[in-house]
Amino acid sequence: MANIKLTNINKSYGSHHIIKDVSLDIKSGEFIVFVGPSGCGKSTLLRSISGLDQVSSGTMEIDNAVVNDVPPSKRGIAMVFQSYALYPHMSVFENIGFALENQGLPRAEIKKKVEAVGEMLQLTTYLTRLPKALSGGQRQRVAIGRAIVRGAKVFLFDEPLSNLDAALRVQMRMEIAKLKRDLPNTTMVYVTHDQVEAMTMADRIVVLQAGRVMQVGTPMELYENPNSVFVAGFIGSPKMNFITGKPADKLKAKTIGVRPEHFEFSKTATDISGTLDYTEVLGSDSFLYVSTPTGMLTVREPGRTQYKTGQKLHLKPIAEHVHRFGPDDNRL
């Protein structure tokens, strides 16, 4: 059981201000996902929690103890790297057991623990192999096994699925979700640039942009009540439509946001009219790209669409799903 508390964390490399005054409270046993575009500082923040990077200012607490000056190995954390960072010259057994060996545990105990983890992750038959003889998914599991075997209170994941192909990624997503169920007391912090991973796995999501926390909340909170244009645009696929001008003015907003599934078609002319430029048919859904005076809008229709390219369309947002944003791009 360990909570993580960040208070006014700042981090600079020379003149580059990477993390700007980040405060965050991560509860014990929670699965937190840091998400944001590349360069937003999410990996740096994770590395600051791990101790691989030192923070420039602010307080970092793990399990109610200030750890600013504590080296990584003494923070009670485990980390799964994007590249897995398996030691290529050591067998799976040695890879998993390396941390225990460093703690000076007796050989028999190391063997017992490694074998238990191997069983849990279905790696028993691979323990004597070298990493290069494993598939991508198996390597991923070894990397997770290395974290589990130490009984760390906090697991840190740095984009662990980005090296896998699409099918394997879905499978590993489920395995990590299962891991979370099996280890309910372990706090997990997960970094990704993929909002789908964030939505499917997180208890809470932290959206970062340019070194600042934009919003913290459960996936559905972020989806339904994004507090800024940035979060609204980042969460959800396809992206939310942003409309300015007359339709927004009517609702006393600078910008209004409407998700593609939240449009209705009208027979008569509306504020938002345009021509159908292009259609993507996916089978389950169709995406209609409509060219309007306020810009290109995306509309989702279930199943097939009856509309033809070049046809004039009249769109009407569903009132209760319209998001209103003020001049500072924040929610009204």
Partner: peptide
């Protein structure tokens, strides 16, 4: 600085480094 995790181990680790 090995087994224990107390403040002295942390300090010793820094001296080592």
């Amino acid at each position: 600085a090995n087994a224990n995790n107390d403040a002295s181990a942390v300090r010793n680790l820094r001296i080592q480094a």
